[in-house]
C-alpha cells in the first residue's frame, strides 16, 4: 500500500498561519494503516494545532473529518458542508487524495500534511519498508519475488555488484540486506538458480507513460 509520513510541525504551522478556521481531513485507507493520516492522526494533529496557536495567542478553530478513501470523488463530497465552513483544508491523505480534494473544492486552499513516500508493506509492528517502484514492467517472476529496482541500492537488474558485505548486507547501506543475495537464496529454494545465469535486459521505463493513465476493460 501507499506509505506516507507526516510533515514536520514547523512546515504545517507555516501553511495554516494565515488562517483562523481550518479542516483537518484524514483518509481511512493506506495512510490510516501506516499510522500517518487516519482518524487517530487527524485528532492528534488537530489537538496539536490548537495547543500551538493558543500558546501564540492566535486561536485557531480546527474541524476534524475522515473519509474512507480520499481519492474517491463520491466519498470526498461527503465533506462538502465542513469544507464550506473553513478557510483552508489540511489533508492527511496521499498525493492522490490531496489532489482529489483540491479538484472538488477549487475555491479552498488544500494543503498536504503528509509526504507520500513509497509503495510498501509492514515489516513488523510500526515499521514499513519499500517494496515496489511502480516501474510498470514487473519482472518479479525472474527474481524469485524480490524487487531489485527498489530494494537494491543501485537498482541493478543483473546483480550482485560484488560489494556485498559480510552477512549478506548492502555495500551502500549496511543496515539493508543485499537484494541480490535475497534473490539468490529465494531462487535456490525453488530450484530455479538457472535464472541467475540469464541476462535481464534494461527496463523499459517508457512502459508507463507518465502521468500514467489506464483504462480497464469496460464491464
Amino acid at each position: 500500500m501507499i506509505i506516507a509520513e507526516r510533515k514536520l510541525m514547523e512546515e504545517i504551522k507555516r501553511l495554516v498561519a494565515p488562517f483562523k478556521k481550518v479542516l483537518v481531513a484524514g483518509c481511512g485507507t493506506c495512510v490510516a494503516v501506516c499510522w500517518a493520516g487516519g482518524e487517530k492522526e487527524v485528532g492528534i494533529l488537530a489537538s496539536q494545532l490548537r495547543l500551538a496557536r493558543n500558546a501564540e495567542g492566535n486561536k485557531i478553530t480546527v474541524l476534524e473529518a475522515t473519509v474512507e478513501r480520499q481519492c474517491e470523488k463520491e466519498m470526498v463530497l461527503e465533506l462538502k458542508d465542513k469544507v464550506a465552513e473553513v478557510e483552508a483544508v489540511l489533508s492527511l491523505a496521499c498525493g492522490a487524495g490531496v489532489q482529489t480534494m483540491a479538484e472538488l473544492f477549487e475555491d479552498k486552499p488544500v494543503f498536504p500534511a503528509v509526504n507520500t513516500t513509497f509503495i510498501g508493506k509492514p515489516e513488523k509492528e510500526g515499521l514499513w519498508t519499500e517494496m515496489c517502484g511502480a516501474c510498470g514492467d514487473c519482472f518479479l517472476d525472474r527474481t524469485g519475488g524480490v524487487c531489485p529496482v527498489v530494494r537494491c541500492a543501485k537498482g541493478l537488474l543483473n546483480g550482485p555488484c560484488g560489494g556485498t558485505r559480510k552477512g549478506g548486507k548492502c555495500e551502500i547501506d549496511p543496515e539493508k540486506d543485499c537484494a541480490w543475495v535475497l534473490i539468490y537464496r529465494r531462487l535456490e529454494k525453488q530450484g530455479r538458480l538457472a535464472l541467475m545465469r540469464e541476462y535481464n535486459p534494461p527496463k523499459n521505463y517508457r512502459a508507463v507513460k507518465r502521468p500514467g493513465r489506464i483504462q480497464a476493460v469496460k464491464a
Binding site: 510541525m9 496539536q48 494545532l49 495547543l51 500551538a52 500558546a55
Partner: peptide
C-alpha cells in the same frame, strides 16, 4: 515529542 513540537 508532540508537545515539544508545538512549543508546549
Amino acid at each position: 515529542m508532540l508537545l515539544k513540537e508545538v512549543g508546549a
